[in-house]
């Protein structure tokens, strides 16, 4: 499509670049501002004079945050839940998606099972009964409360199931003739062929676990069991002062509530920024993954 640029076209392009630059900045500036606040002195931050560049540059707020035991503990809990939760999620996703990707002629109860899982996407018992169930099964205050109730990600399963159905059927047939059982076929043929899809779902799951906060808030009684996002909910959002020690109160003269919040927000954002290149690549992939249809 080669054509000369008319004057109106040039105008449009200029306006278009301007508009897209503005909305890109709108997405970026809040983060730059928070970063600048986190690196500014308490006085400058409280006075509200910090815009997009640190004023009276200091890393005191980071020193403070990274020396707080509660913060580090909850960071550890988050890492633990991401590793454990993602491993369990992926294992169950593969174990469910494979059988459900079979045709009814090969697996007679397939439709029943599919509905068994899909129904949970349509209807749920809601917050209070879930809370009771977690309590009754004795998961309260344990890391498993953050892993088990969310262990079967039905949406991811549907994506993988559709992906599996797109793989050539001959592979499975020939392996069956060679005497491989379904476990072997799943593990040795389907899993290796779906690495990009599995990578996408792994990232879905990791981000979901890192960002989850509500389950930590309601299922954990002791704050030292909070994952990072739940901890930040109480400190940054609810401004809960229970976590302040006397030394902290002394420190507040140096590190204001505001710079401290900003530093904590930024540290919690870092892991996402670190995997962001992968996220961008694979999430787009994941959207397309869902559209594999016969």
């Amino acid at each position: 499509m080669d054509y000369r640029m008319s004057w109106s076209r040039k105008c449009f392009l200029a306006a278009n670049y301007t508009f897209l630059t503005v909305i890109s900045l709108l997405c970026l500036i809040p983060f730059i501002h928070i970063f600048a606040v986190s690196l500014s002195s308490a006085a400058a931050a409280s006075a509200g004079s910090v815009k997009l560049w640190p004023i009276d540059f200091t890393i005191a707020s980071y020193e403070n945050v990274l020396s707080k035991r509660e913060f580090l503990t909850s960071f550890g809990v988050s890492l633990k839940r991401v590793l454990l939760g993602t491993a369990v999620n992926m294992l169950l996703t593969v174990l469910v998606a494979y059988p459900l990707s079979k045709e009814v002629s090969h697996f007679r109860l397939r439709t029943v099972y599919v509905w068994f899982f899909v129904l949970t996407m349509l209807f749920s018992g809601g917050l209070i009964p879930l809370y009771m169930t977690v309590k009754m099964t004795g998961l309260m205050d344990s890391i498993w409360a953050l892993v088990i109730p969310a262990a079967v990600p039905v949406y991811n399963i549907v994506l993988l199931l559709n992906f599996f159905r797109g793989l050539p059927k001959e592979l499975e047939e020939s392996a069956t003739i060679d005497g491989a059982n379904p476990f072997i076929i799943m593990w040795k043929i389907f899993v290796p062929l779906s690495v990009p899809a599995l990578a996408t779902l792994t990232l879905f799951s990791m981000v979901m676990h890192w960002n989850s906060w509500f389950d930590g808030l309601i299922f954990m009684n002791q704050p030292e069991h909070y994952p990072l996002q739940s901890f930040l909910q109480t400190v940054v959002i609810q401004r809960d002062m229970r976590f302040l020690t006397p030394e902290d109160v002394e420190l507040l003269k140096l590190v204001s509530d505001r710079t401290s919040s900003a530093a904590q927000i930024f540290v919690a954002t870092m892991p996402i920024l670190l995997v962001y290149p992968f996220l961008q690549k694979y999430f787009v992939h994941g959207i397309v993954l869902g559209s594999v249809k016969e």
């Binding site: 169950l92 174990l95 469910v96 494979y98 059988p99 459900l100 079979k102 697996f107 109860l109 099972y113 068994f116 899982f117 949970t120 209807f123 749920s124 018992g125 809601g126 209070i128 009964p129 879930l130 009771m132 169930t133 977690v134 099964t137 088990i148 109730p149 262990a151 079967v152 059982n181 379904p182 476990f183 799943m186």
Partner: peptide, 24 residues
């Protein structure tokens, strides 16, 4: 084999998705 693969997920979904429905 296929039933066996589904078993762990079914138990979890029964308890944590269908359980709360009963809890209603």
């Amino acid at each position: 084999y296929l039933h066996l693969m589904l078993l762990p997920a079914i138990i979890i979904v029964l308890i944590y998705s269908y359980g709360p429905m009963v809890g209603l």
